[in-house]
């Protein structure tokens, strides 16, 4: 599978995680793609940390509004019922526990649910933006990530080596190989992709996985 197909499997699976009416914040990049796969019978409210709820799709060419972009600066639209507000209100929503779920990317995650996704010392220091607030404030933190890094090394580790975004806040990890729940006992392998095996998943995961008794497959 190429990168595009792997990403599609990930975001399609994450799109099944929401209930009707959930307030959801999607990170920039792969997480944004989740919006395209939400089941028709489910209506979620997307929150944008630059100051609104009711985030809609990209406008038609020529209909862009200079005052209406997502948190990544791309032109977007606002849906009926949406609302604009200032940054303090935006983070009152995020930190006050009014966001049901957030989907973010990861550089590393570990068996305690620690997440590193905002910097690589000496290399990439873009800043945390709203990621630290989202990870510590959202009710459910879902990671959308490729199972291994470009060089094939595991990204799901015993212990994160990079500076953390937040400690022990991740709830669910969805990769192109597996759906893993973070539990008090460790990482629980709930589902594996249709084209892999439990052995393959464990081989590509540094942390020890607990296999769910009711293991399912996904991604067909």
């Amino acid at each position: 599978m190429d990168k595009k197909q792997r990403r599609e499997i990930i975001v399609k699976r994450i799109a099944k995680e929401f209930k009707d009416g959930d307030v959801v914040n999607l990170g920039i990049g792969m997480p944004t793609m989740v919006a395209n796969y939400i089941p028709e019978e489910i209506d979620i409210v997307l929150q944008s940390e630059n100051g609104f709820v009711g985030l809609g799709s990209a406008p038609m060419e020529g209909d862009e509004d200079k005052d209406l972009t997502n948190a990544g600066g791309q032109p977007v639209t606002i849906r009926k019922g949406g609302a604009f507000f200032d940054s303090a209100t935006s983070f009152t929503i995020i930190r006050g526990g009014h966001v049901d779920a957030t989907v973010l990317g990861a550089l590393e995650v570990d068996e305690k649910g620690n997440l590193a996704n905002w910097m690589i010392p000496g290399k990439m220091v873009p800043g945390m933006g709203g990621a630290m607030d989202l990870v510590s404030g959202a009710k459910k933190v879902i990671l959308a990530m490729e199972h291994v890094s470009k060089d094939g090394s595991p990204k799901i580790l015993k212990k994160c080596s990079l500076p953390l975004t937040a400690a022990e806040e991740v709830d669910l990890i969805v990769t192109d190989m597996a759906v893993i729940k973070v539990t008090e006992k460790g990482l629980l392998l709930k589902e594996i992709a249709f084209n892999t095996t439990v052995e393959e998943v464990q081989k590509n995961t540094q942390a020890k996985l607990i296999i769910d008794e009711d293991l399912k497959t996904f991604g067909e």
Partner: peptide, 10 residues
């Protein structure tokens, strides 16, 4: 106006 509010009022 719209998302141009952000940090301005604070």
């Amino acid at each position: 106006r719209k998302a141009a509010r952000n940090f301005n009022p604070i």
